[in-house]
């Protein structure tokens, strides 16, 4: 992919109009890191959305709202009551990339190794898409397939809404990599809702090691209504094999990746339970 033109719209309607007119020849640019690796010789026009005020983190009611052009390093550094997004952002790539790469860029086009779709699926986040007016799309629907389908006609991702965790909620994420800044082999995120030590509800999601990020329903089913204990977590993690089609890579077999996923699920659940207990105290 080659940039042949670079435009800076002054407003969201203007950006949408430009993208609508350009069709497949238009490409949204915020951090722009992914554009450098887009294959092909097609020439495209970059539509720079960094001047549209889409870089912010604020709490609004029951949600943390993160602007689509917010760099990962801002999310990593942000602190607030029951804020859990910093952990995974710290594990994404390097300091220099996190300073530029944005939350929107991470989820507008989902790469197989992307970590944020996994976290947002587990968190039950909502994505805000602008199509002349703003509309919330729940994570399950947004990540049901490649989100590019939602941006035809110039529509834009403008924000991500993450539910503020309640006192009895706990969140944990685990990213398994070959080295500190490598792409993920397996990423797991878990959200647990506990009541008197019992799991009232669970959302567990995985990414990397599978073709596309997804929730692990058999793992969630094995948790619901049970005691939040290591034994239960181990039993649930063992359902990973049935939950998804694990794929080998980087010299590792599919079976190895599945086992890595099981260990990571256990770890994420332990962290989530610890988080919930800590917050409840």
């Amino acid at each position: 992919m080659k940039l042949s033109e670079f435009i800076r719209p002054a407003s969201l309607p203007e950006a949408r109009k430009a993208l609508r007119a350009l069709g497949p020849k238009g490409m949204v640019l915020a951090g722009g890191t992914a554009l450098h690796f887009m294959p092909g010789k097609t020439t495209v026009t970059a539509v720079d959305i960094t001047g549209l005020g889409l870089s912010y983190i604020k709490q609004k009611g029951d949600y943390f709202v993160i602007g689509a052009a917010t760099p990962l390093s801002d999310i990593q550094r942000h602190r607030g009551p029951r804020w859990a997004m910093h952990e995974i952002c710290r594990r994404i790539s390097t300091h220099q990339i996190r300073n530029v790469s944005t939350i929107g860029g991470n989820i507008a086009r989902v790469f197989p190794w992307a970590d944020l779709p996994v976290v947002l699926l587990a968190m039950n986040a909502r994505m805000v898409v602008y199509s002349g007016k703003e509309k919330d799309i729940p994570a399950d629907e947004y990540f049901s397939s490649q989100p590019a389908r939602l941006f035809r006609g110039g529509d834009l991702l403008t924000a991500v809404k993450i539910p503020v965790l309640k006192a009895h909620h706990g969140f944990g994420s685990v990213k398994a990599t070959r080295n500190a800044t490598a792409f993920s082999l397996v990423t797991i995120a878990a959200l647990l809702e506990l009541k008197n030590g019992v799991i009232k509800s669970a959302r567990v999601a995985a990414g990397s090691g599978i073709p596309f990020p997804q929730r692990l329903k058999p793992v969630e089913d094995a948790l619901a209504g049970k005691e939040a204990s290591t034994a239960v977590f181990k039993e649930a993690a063992a359902a990973a094999g049935a939950a998804a089609r694990w794929v080998g890579g980087e010299g590792m077999s599919a079976d190895y990746i599945r086992q890595l996923a099981e260990v990571s699920i256990l770890d994420a659940l332990e962290r989530a339970a610890e988080f919930a207990r800590g917050r409840a105290a």
Partner: peptide
Amino acid sequence: LDGRATYACLLYAMQ
């Protein structure tokens, strides 16, 4: 870039 470390190889000059 505005005080933050960035890779100049992954930044378009126009940015």
